Simulated assay, not measured.
Amino acid sequence: MNSLERISATVNFEKSDRVPVIPQIFGLAGVMAGVPVHEYVRDGALLAECQIKAINKYGYDAVFSVMDTSVEAEAVGAVLEYRKGMYPTIQTYAIQDKCSIDRLVLPDPNKAGRMPEMLRALKIMRRAVGDERLVVGCVMGPLTLATQLLGMEKALYLAIDEPGVFIKLLDFCTEVAIGFGLAQIKAGAHLPLIFNPSASPAVVPPQFFREIELPQLQKICRIFAEAGSIANWLHIAGPAASILPFYPSIGVDIANFDYPVTPQQAGEALPSMCLDGNIKSISFIEDSPEEITARASELLNYFETRGGFILSSGCEISPQSRPENIAAMVNAVRKNG
């Protein structure tokens, strides 16, 4: 089996030759290739080159066109600061007050900000790996983009004080995600990862997620599936156990679970859904390869009879991580395969 066949079989709870392994490597791919993060996140061709080098060296199952969480916010009008060796940070939010919401303009993924560079990376990677490896794009979930456009505190106060205005903002953010995601599929992504950290129960209550964010995610997942995405992959990190039961109604096919969620919790909440996780991201900085191997083996053993499992990190593997720990994670799958 190649990687794409292996992942497709796993998503459908069919037999595969081994468990897929997908370390969530973004900026780390650049660092391992000697490319500073601040350069990696601005050049699609460089990003693609680094991703391909990493996957060829370590032999895992997916490449990612992921820069950082501010790509869409910048395309809409946020001003970022690019510091040497670091991910960019937002210096000026695109929305200064609620009146600005009515003046927002949907960005053109082929022209706005760094969006074209992400599409460029996807085209290069898809040409390089074809249908042998999974090619993953990325869009920010509506709630995450809303907090990136307005700022976390202002966004949450707006949701409480003027829910109608806030939903208007979420509607806009949903259209941004749809437009960018469709452009990614057209450029060669097998699927766009929906990355949504602000939807974590650590940020908003589960009831808020169910009533406000869930309908937006349903729309995104439906349109991505209709456009040919091979699966809808939702990534909400942190203590997400309380919202996992909502995932089937959203249309999720692959559910990321982070280290605060136990394998038992994830499996009980989503018995028929493919899961990916959940090695603690900081472990790739702090732990030894032997400790990574041990944790990976625990997960592989737990899900051995269930199936429907992709070994992964619970969230992004930091650019400061130890490359030997990536090798340990991948080798654990091969040993157990």
Rank of each mutant, 00 (worst) to 15 (best):
L149N: 02
T174R: 10
A121Y: 03
L170C: 08
A155E: 01
V165A: 06
G141S: 13
D131G: 13
A94T: 05
G179S: 14
A177N: 09
C138Q: 10
V105F: 05
A159F: 05
Q96Y: 00
L150Q: 01
E175M: 11
P109C: 09
R127E: 15
D108V: 12
G137C: 11
A146Q: 07
I124N: 00
E175S: 10
L158V: 04
S100A: 14
C138W: 03
A177R: 06
D102I: 03
K123N: 13
D97K: 02
E162Q: 12
E132L: 15
L119Q: 05
L145A: 08
I167F: 03
R114K: 14
L119C: 07
V165T: 15
R114V: 05
T144I: 10
D161M: 04
E153G: 03
M125W: 06
M115I: 14
L122E: 02
R120W: 00
D97G: 09
E153Q: 13
R127G: 12
L145H: 07
L104T: 11
P116W: 05
I95W: 00
T144F: 04
R103K: 15
C99V: 10
L134F: 14
T144V: 11
V135A: 12
M115G: 02
V135S: 05
K111L: 15
V176W: 02
D171V: 00
C173Y: 11
T174V: 07
A155G: 06
V136T: 12
E132H: 14
P107T: 15
I160F: 06
D108L: 06
L150A: 05
I160T: 09
D171C: 05
E175G: 10
S100H: 13
V139D: 04
L156M: 12
P142I: 04
L122F: 06
G141N: 08
E132S: 14
R103M: 10
I101G: 02
N110G: 11
E162Y: 10
Q96C: 03
C173F: 12
L122A: 07
Q148G: 02
L170W: 06
